[in-house]
Amino acid sequence: MEKRVLVVEDEPNISEALRFILTREGWKVDVSADGKSMLGMLQADPPDLLILDLMLPDLSGFDILKVLRAGDGTRELPVLMLTAKGQAADRVEAERLGVTRFMTKPFANAEVIAAVREMTAP
């Protein structure tokens, strides 16, 4: 069965780039530009992987992460967090909240793919 990834990203160009390289890797890619609307759907039918931007217009990536880690169906969901802020404190906070991987923008496409593979390896 085809693996599903959900990309939560408010910059359209970035989500388009992610969609392109992940589709090429054989993923089914869904994109959401803000956090709130995605949360309900996410908990009802969790994807295999979540790629989460830290700075979103409504919620922060941290808020979403907190909700995910509290929900039954999403506690183990691999989450790759991408951020353009690049501050060390953010990485610490993300890890405390249970992020699976943390990467800063701009990223190398190969690194994202490698990380995704690693995170979803059986």
Partner: peptide
């Protein structure tokens, strides 16, 4: 500085991602 960093990194992310896509496709 954090804001500037964010504002600079965001377009650079797109530029880098798409230039890499164009390079290896």
């Amino acid at each position: 500085l954090s804001q500037i960093s964010h504002e600079l990194r965001t377009p650079m992310t797109s530029i880098r991602a798409f230039s890499e896509i164009m390079m290896d496709s």
